[in-house]
Nucleic acid binder design. Structure first.
Length: 278
DNA sequence: TTCCAGGTGCATA
DNA sequence: TATGCACATGGA
């Protein structure tokens, strides 16, 4: 990968396995929108615009923040080659080979995926935006996702006004628990223990804990099973339409091992774009 | 109007 | 341990 920087724009040449659309629209991120031909992304207390392989930012920010955020230091061809041993996965990867797993904020992932339950993606994005506008830092052209301290000022009625619905009580519980359950310290735990700790929060079950550990803690051996993944796994790997989620998880680990998380993202993108199993 | 969405907690058997 | 239901909200 060649990084060409000039005049506050960074262009990546000969970059393999990176596509901004696929990376943002594979279901891991909520704070982005396509404006004309550029994606506007709010993360890391900043607003970033990206068009294809061009990042509108300084060289310093790109190297210190975005290179890691977009996981551009990692060689994805190794991961893809391993996963391609499975013929179905090979097809899914051909479809979304530019997906990168973002390194996102732990607290933001916790609250975002609590909001995601029994909700649609456009609505999830709207609710997260409402919360950011109400409690987050004004960045000029948008609002950062609130910090623990900022969101701790919220009460349940205000959260309901942000359209969180029945999840407002779960967010309140999360805010209470993160006082004693230091999200950064949890990073020292092995993945199974990390998930168990996260599940002590009301409103965090198997699926949400897996999403937080995958997207917030970079635990790529996590395999969140939602309706889409369940549908596509049943469509391709099982005959039954009501396969037990524990069985799907066990089989996914057997097939994809330490690369489960990547496999999950390739499948999710493939399933949603192609509406497979629907 | 009715159904359902990147699920989870709770009651019941 | 397994199953069924309620839960806020809004778009199709």
């Amino acid at each position: 990968m060649n990084i060409i920087s000039n005049d506050n724009t960074i262009t990546l040449n000969e970059v393999e396995n990176f596509n901004i659309k696929q990376t943002l629209e594979c279901g891991q991120a909520f704070r982005f929108e396509l404006i004309n031909d550029r994606y506007k992304i709010i993360a890391k207390n900043k607003i970033l615009y990206v068009k294809e392989n061009t990042f509108y930012t300084t060289k310093k920010d790109f190297e210190e923040i975005w290179l890691d955020y977009f996981d551009l230091k990692k060689d994805y061809s190794l991961i893809q080659n391993k996963l391609c041993e499975d013929s179905i996965m090979k097809k899914a990867i051909e479809y979304g080979k530019g997906i990168r797993i973002l390194n996102q904020d732990k607290f933001e992932m916790l609250i975002s995926f609590i909001i995601s339950q029994n909700n649609r993606i456009p609505m999830i994005k709207k609710v997260i935006n409402n919360i950011s506008e109400k409690y987050g830092t004004d960045l000029g052209d948008g609002y950062a996702f609130p910090t623990v301290e900022q969101l701790s000022k919220a009460n349940i009625n205000e959260l309901m006004e942000c359209k969180t619905g029945f999840r407002a009580k779960y967010i309140m519980d999360a805010l209470e628990k993160v006082n004693t359950l230091d999200l950064n310290k949890l990073d020292q735990l092995p993945t199974p223990e990390l998930k168990e700790k996260l599940k002590e929060i009301n409103g965090v079950g198997d699926k949400v804990a897996n999403c937080i550990s995958l997207f917030g803690y970079g635990r790529c051996d996590s395999f969140p099973i939602d309706v889409w993944i369940k549908r596509i796994m049943e469509h391709f790997y099982y005959n039954s339409q009501d396969t037990n989620k524990n069985i799907i998880t066990a089989d996914a680990i057997k097939m994809f091992g330490q690369y489960c998380g990547y496999a999950q993202q390739y499948l999710f993108y493939y399933a949603r774009e192609e509406k497979i199993g629907k």
